[in-house]
C-alpha cells in the first residue's frame, strides 16, 4: 500500500493490530523518542521569583514527590505518543490518544496552585468529552467499512468513510489536546518544571500531525 505518509518501510504485527513505519510516522516516532529520552535524562528547571526594587530572588520550592510524579507522567506521555505515532489501527490510535490526554492532565494536576488546578480540571473535562467523538468516530468507521486497520482502509475497494466521521476523529484529537484549546495550556505553563510541561504541548502537536495522516488515509 502507499498511504498518505509514503509506503511503509517495516511492519510489526501484534495480531490484528499491525504497527507500521512509513517515512512520515517514523519521523514523528523518532521525535517523540528523542524527547522522551530528554525528559528521562534532564533535570527539572527551577522557577525563580524576582523581587522588584531589590537585588533579590527566591527559588520556588517544589517537593521531591511532586517532581517524581510529574516526571513519571511525562515519560508515560512520551511512550503514549510514540505508540500513537506508529499504530496502524484506528481504535488503537484513539486509545493511545486518550492516554496522551490523561497523562497531560496528570502532569499539570500535581501542581499545588489553585489556578493551575482549575485549568487542569477544565482541560480534563474537555479530554473526557473528547473521547466521545473519538470512540464514536472509530466505531462508525468500523460499521461503514467493516475494518479498523489503516492498511485496509487505504485501499479503494471499501465503501468511503463519511466525511463527517473524519471530522469526528479530528475533533476528538483536538479535545485531547490541541489548538484552539491550546490557549488553556498557556495557563498551565505557569506550572513550574520545564521539560514536563513542554511534553504536554509536544505530544499534542505530534498526535495532531498523526491524525492528519490517519484521516487522509481513509
Amino acid at each position: 500500500m502507499i498511504g498518505a505518509g509514503g509506503s511503509p518501510l517495516r511492519y510489526l504485527e501484534f495480531g490484528d493490530i499491525v504497527i507500521y513505519f512509513s517515512p512520515y510516522t517514523l519521523a514523528l516516532f523518532l521525535l517523540a523518542l528523542v524527547f522522551t529520552v530528554l525528559v528521562i535524562a534532564s533535570k527539572p528547571e527551577r522557577q525563580l521569583d524576582i523581587a522588584f526594587g531589590a537585588d533579590a530572588f527566591t527559588t520556588k520550592d517544589i517537593g521531591l514527590s511532586e517532581m517524581r510524579f510529574r516526571r513519571f507522567m511525562a515519560i508515560a506521555c512520551g511512550l503514549a505518543s510514540m505508540g500513537a505515532m506508529v499504530t496502524g489501527d484506528v481504535f488503537d490510535f484513539c486509545l493511545f490518544t486518550s492516554l496522551v490526554g490523561i497523562c497531560n492532565v496528570g502532569i499539570v494536576a500535581a501542581v499545588k496552585s489553585r489556578h493551575v488546578q482549575g485549568a487542569a480540571f477544565q482541560y480534563g473535562l474537555v479530554a473526557l468529552a473528547g473521547t466521545v467523538p473519538l470512540f464514536g468516530g472509530a466505531a462508525i468507521v468500523a460499521a461503514t467499512t467493516g475494518t479498523l486497520s489503516l492498511i485496509e482502509l487505504s485501499s479503494t475497494l471499501l465503501p468511503a468513510v463519511p466525511l463527517v466521521v473524519k471530522g469526528f476523529l479530528v475533533l476528538g484529537v483536538m479535545g485531547e489536546g490541541m489548538a484552539p484549546f491550546y490557549a488553556a495550556k498557556a495557563e498551565m505553563f505557569r506550572a513550574p518544571g520545564a521539560p514536563y510541561v513542554i511534553m504536554c504541548s509536544l505530544s499534542s502537536l505530534l498526535i495532531f500531525l498523526r491524525v492528519i495522516e490517519v484521516v487522509l488515509q481513509m
Binding site: F14, G15, D16, I17, F69, F72, M73, A76, A80, G83, T87, D89, F91, D92, L95, F96, S98, L99, I102, C103, V105, G106, A109, A110
Partner: peptide, 18 residues
Amino acid sequence: RGLDTVVETTILFIAFAI
C-alpha cells in the same frame, strides 16, 4: 487485539495513579 487491552489497562493505571 491484545494491544488495545494493554493500552486500556495503562489508561486505568495512569488515572488511578493521578
